[in-house]
Simulated assay, not measured.
Amino acid sequence: MTSTDSREAREGPGKTRRRSRFGCRNCKLRKLKCDESKPQCKRCSSFGVVCNFLTSTTPDLQPIPADSRRSWMVRGTAAAAGLQPPLSNAIWTSDASTLFQLNTRCQDFITRYLGHSLITPNDPNMGQVNRKLLELAFTHPYLMHASLAVSLTYDRHLNSPSDSHRTLEECYHWSQSTILFNQKLREHIEPNERDPIWGTAAALVILTFSSPNARTPEESWPLNPSPSSYLDWVHMNKGKMSLWNIVNPLRSDSIFHVMAGAFAYVHSPLPEGGTEGIPPALAALCGITDDSTAETNPYFHAAHAVAQILEIEDSEVTMGPVQMFMRCIQGGFEGLLRDRDPVALVLLYLWYRKAGRCIWWIGLRARVECPAIWMYLRRYHGGDDSVMELLPDGGKFLMN
């Protein structure tokens, strides 16, 4: 795996790369010379996609079915866990200033994951978005690094013990994406960069959320109140939302336009007053009455957002209701959370318990932070029946 800021490292000084006039669309998309082999060019065979040289009906970058291609990743060996050497048949992602050569393991993750919906599995809209993001990743290295880091994290979620920590590869791609992304945000943003910027920002939120510093509840916030444990994902999500007006993911030419329904749910107005929809025990704990509003009660919006997601079947939970609660972590309620206020912690616990069962990257943090909240509340507020009544299972929701 190599990275450099010079195009000469790829093409050699004074040399230009000749492209085939009649090559497959996959190679043209990836800015590679196609050898025009039939029925499958060598570039597509190496990359693990179906060559579309001879047909106009085969989608771009269509993965070869897993059972009909050899596995590139050696599982269960030290080599699989390390950074493998690059391919001699180089595959690049590059923009005007940065090059990155994908190794065999990177290609495997792209083929297996990046054409699918990783944020919420089985979401057809997200699957469509991710396939288009894959195409953009070849010309925006910060997006490629972010996508690879998310794929590696998802693979760890599927195939590693529940207490596994970030791998070297995850950290490498996460770090590279952050560096390149920060550089991009300091520059003028061109219209064609808006979608990759929003996709990268979303990926960085997932990486931050799914990577708590703690391995056990005892090491986790709120039991451990060290600054490094303080709701770092809240800051990252706010950073992403600060880009909304710049990139406008709902514009008609955006690849994220198909997510308009989810975005509309996130930004839909919450009730202006009252307790309707909130379970009576939760309303009583939060001090919410028929006369309450967001101006008079700091828990008001968060309680309504939690109540909405609790009403949804696990199989039907999407990012809309999940992010509605995230949107409510601001102002007075955010301050109460940081002060480890017991009522605010109960609301966060209930959200973790529901969202963590349904969204894998929330579950990776909820595995340690949800039990930590329960332990903290039992230790310091165990005598408050109204608090403990809403914490029936000891935070072990992922073991049920």
Results as ranks from 00 to 15, higher is better:
Q183R: 13
T289I: 15
S386F: 02
R378A: 12
N248P: 02
V50T: 11
R338N: 05
Q323A: 12
I312H: 05
L133H: 03
L243K: 15
R19M: 15
A264L: 14
A344N: 06
S20E: 09
I362F: 03
A203Y: 00
L185H: 00
L336D: 12
K132E: 15
E218S: 14
D314V: 02
A137L: 07
Q107N: 11
V129S: 05
T58V: 15
P85D: 08
T55Q: 13
I64G: 07
M375N: 05
D155S: 09
L377Q: 01
S177F: 02
Y265N: 10
N237F: 05
L243R: 11
H145T: 02
E218L: 11
V258K: 11
E311R: 14
G320C: 14
Q330F: 01
P217Y: 13
D253T: 13
L207Q: 00
L152Q: 00
Y349R: 15
A78H: 03
A146E: 03
V306D: 04
S175D: 06
E36N: 14
Q101G: 07
M241V: 09
K238C: 00
E276N: 06
F263I: 01
C41K: 01
W72C: 12
R19S: 03
Q176W: 01
G48E: 10
I110W: 05
V150P: 00
K240T: 01
W351L: 12
P271W: 03
L102M: 09
F263C: 07
A344T: 02
N224K: 10
I373K: 01
S315N: 06
F397Q: 02
W360K: 04
L391E: 05
S162M: 05
A281K: 06
I119N: 00
V346W: 08
H140R: 14
D385N: 14
A90D: 07
L29Y: 08
I329N: 04
F325D: 04
K396E: 01
E11S: 04
L243Q: 08
V50S: 06
G332Y: 12
P161F: 03
N89W: 10
D339C: 11
E272I: 10
S164L: 10
T296D: 11
D341N: 13
I64C: 07
I206E: 02
M326P: 00
K28M: 09
F209T: 01
D195T: 08
H257N: 09
L364H: 05
P371A: 03
S45R: 11
V368E: 06
P196I: 10
P269Q: 12
N297T: 06
A281L: 07
L337H: 13
C358V: 07
M73W: 11
T57P: 05
P371T: 00
E311Q: 09
D195R: 04
T55N: 14
M375I: 07
P279C: 09
A366D: 01
D232I: 00
S242W: 07
Y113I: 01
L118N: 04
D291G: 11
D290S: 15
H267I: 04
I288R: 10
P279D: 05
G331E: 13
I255S: 06
S68K: 15
R340S: 06
Q101E: 12
H257G: 07
F300G: 04
W360A: 02
A260F: 11
S226R: 10
G48S: 08
P13E: 13
I246W: 01
